[in-house]
Simulated assay, not measured.
Amino acid sequence: MNTSEHCKEVYAYFGLAMYRAQCVEQSIVQLLIFFDFFKKNAPIFSTSEKWEADFDRFDKVLSKKTMGHLLGSIKDLGILDDNIENILSLALKKRNWLAHAYFVDNALDFINETGRNRMIKELEDAIELFNSVENMLNPIASSAALKYGMTEDALDKIKKEMYESAHGDL
């Protein structure tokens, strides 16, 4: 592999690692939706319009929070065991390092093949960490979704509608 292609490979792995970190962040958001918003608002549901307006407000507040603040919010709800909370804290540290210091910390490694190979391995490890966190959080969110009537069929219908509205080709 030539040097230019090897550099592109590092960037591709970095992009995938950051994407997976964002997936973890969205999983935390999903948990907050089910264990905070739904829990508080489902019992007092009055109209679809009010629900949508309240949901949009809640979502807007969440979208302004950092991953660290989202993690603090989910910890405050007390729904996760200590092991998951500890792994989420590790994922947060890894995500923040990737976002704020990764290329600075690896500047000298990036200029040689051995260093780039080490960077790729490090990014693969980060991707695996984020994947394992998702594997822990997804069943919790799925269980909560089911409690509120979001069956696999309902979710498939929502996905289909989203893909069609986006004119997706995946």
Rank of each mutant, 00 (worst) to 15 (best):
M1R: 04
T3E: 07
S4L: 08
E5K: 00
C7H: 02
K8S: 08
V10Y: 04
Y11G: 01
Y13P: 04
F14S: 04
A17Q: 06
A21G: 04
A21T: 02
C23D: 05
C23Q: 02
V24W: 01
V24K: 01
Q26H: 13
F35A: 01
F35K: 05
D36Y: 02
F38K: 13
K39V: 07
K40Y: 04
E49L: 11
W51Q: 09
E52R: 15
E52V: 15
F55D: 03
F55S: 06
K60I: 14
K60G: 11
V61S: 11
S63T: 10
K64P: 05
K64F: 08
K64C: 08
L71I: 03
S73I: 00
I74M: 05
I74W: 06
I74F: 02
K75L: 03
G78S: 04
G78D: 00
I79A: 00
L80S: 00
N83I: 01
E85D: 05
E85F: 00
I87A: 03
S89N: 02
A91K: 02
A91V: 04
L92A: 00
W97V: 04
A101L: 07
F103G: 08
N106F: 07
A107E: 00
L108H: 07
L108C: 06
L108N: 10
I111N: 11
G115W: 01
A126R: 06
I127P: 14
L129A: 01
N131H: 15
N135D: 14
N138A: 15
I140Y: 08
S142H: 05
S143T: 10
K147T: 11
Y148C: 14
Y148E: 13
M150S: 15
M150I: 10
E152L: 02
A154V: 15
A154E: 12
D156R: 15
Y163K: 15
S165N: 12
A166E: 13
G168N: 06
